[in-house]
Measured scan of single mutants.
Amino acid sequence: EESVKIVRLVKNKEPLGATIRRDEHSGAVVVARIMRGGAADRSGLVHVGDELREVNGIAVLHKRPDEISQILAQSQGSITLKIIPATQE
């Protein structure tokens, strides 16, 4: 059973501070990098390897990473992410 986590981040004009990529094996959209000091890093709630399912209620599974980045870039104020946390080894 996948544990889905709802994360709310507050982002002003600054970038979210995370990059995403598509996992070639599973097809999932995952967090590739977290930039120090960005909104994602400061929240402490988003981690490399987390699978991104939704951004502000928009399912991202069938979107290209550049489309998802665009949605994230255009979002201001509160951003709600639905993520499946990376499995902690």
Rank of each mutant, 00 (worst) to 15 (best):
S3F: 15
I6A: 06
L9T: 05
V10W: 09
V10S: 11
K11P: 09
K11D: 09
K11T: 15
K11V: 15
N12K: 09
N12I: 10
N12R: 10
K13A: 11
L16G: 01
A18G: 01
T19H: 10
T19G: 06
I20H: 01
I20D: 00
I20S: 01
I20E: 03
R22D: 04
E24S: 10
H25K: 15
S26T: 14
G27C: 03
G27Q: 09
A28N: 07
A28I: 06
A28P: 02
V29C: 12
V31F: 15
V31T: 01
V31D: 02
V31Y: 01
A32F: 05
A32C: 11
A32G: 09
R33A: 13
M35W: 12
R36D: 11
R36N: 11
G37M: 04
G38Y: 06
G38F: 05
A39M: 11
D41S: 06
D41W: 12
R42C: 06
G44C: 05
L45C: 09
L45A: 12
L45S: 10
V46N: 01
V46E: 02
H47L: 02
H47Y: 04
V48I: 10
G49V: 00
D50E: 01
D50N: 01
E51K: 06
E51D: 01
R53G: 02
E54N: 02
E54T: 04
E54R: 02
V55D: 01
V55E: 02
I58K: 09
A59I: 08
A59K: 14
V60L: 13
L61H: 15
L61G: 14
H62S: 12
H62A: 09
H62R: 10
K63H: 07
K63F: 06
K63L: 11
K63M: 13
R64A: 13
P65E: 12
D66Q: 11
I68A: 03
S69N: 14
S69C: 10
Q70K: 13
Q70G: 12
I71R: 05
I71H: 06
I71S: 05
L72K: 02
S75R: 08
Q76G: 09
Q76H: 13
Q76W: 07
Q76M: 11
G77M: 06
G77I: 03
S78V: 13
S78E: 14
I79E: 03
I79P: 03
L81V: 04
L81R: 03
I83K: 05
I84S: 08
P85Y: 02
A86F: 11
A86V: 10
T87P: 12
Q88N: 13
E89N: 14
E89M: 10
E89Q: 11
